[in-house]
């Protein structure tokens, strides 16, 4: 069944905001719950410059559910205590979307991410770019990411990345 335009927009925006909220709260478990519980659920973070030249390599290449779960382990266990922590604020704006079939939609959104390192307190822009999302719709009007590609205009990062964008 195709969702009404309003219900679809509502479902997509709830997902976009839930992801921004989880990331900015450093809630990696919450971040993971925004992804579909399917083997092929994926997250990629890559310079758009690579994509435009057919280079698939990314900053983060989590092409299956197992890697998404490992990403949570990197941040919460393996890296804990080794880096200069920083706050982020994600600003996300959906610019286009369409429902592909009864259980799938795709959406494109712009993002900008501010970063404030805890030690300096000086706010900078961490990255700007676009999210290209494939979204799984469930019968109750909820949406989860089947695939999210963060395509960064920022081809030269101003800092190492700990958290996904």
């Amino acid at each position: 069944m195709m969702l009404s335009p309003t219900k679809l927009e509502c479902a997509l925006d709830r997902l976009l905001l839930a992801d921004a909220n989880a990331l900015d709260s450093k809630d990696m478990t919450g971040w993971l719950t925004n992804y579909a519980e399917e083997e092929q659920a994926s997250y990629y973070c890559r310079a758009a410059e690579n994509t435009e030249h057919n280079l698939e390599l990314g900053f983060m290449f989590d092409d299956c559910r197992a890697r998404l779960e490992d990403r949570v382990t990197y941040v919460t266990e393996i890296w804990a205590g080794t880096f200069q922590d920083y706050r982020t604020r994600h600003f996300v704006q959906r610019v286009s979307h369409r429902q592909v079939d009864a259980s799938t939609a795709e959406a494109m959104s712009n993002f900008s991410v501010f970063m404030t390192p805890m030690d300096t307190g000086v706010t900078q822009i961490l990255a700007a770019g676009r999210y290209l999302d494939m979204v799984r719709l469930s019968g109750d009007g909820r949406a989860k990411f089947l695939s999210r590609r963060a395509e960064l205009d920022t081809s030269v990062l101003p800092r190492y990345l700990v958290y996904p964008i």
Binding site: C45, L57, F59, F61, Y74, T82, Y160
Partner: peptide, 19 residues
């Protein structure tokens, strides 16, 4: 798959180097 996630400024075993 290995190159994207293992080394570099967000790599599993090297992000701490960057810090």
């Amino acid at each position: 798959r290995q190159s994207s996630n293992l080394l570099g400024p967000c790599g599993l075993i090297s992000m701490e180097d960057a810090s």
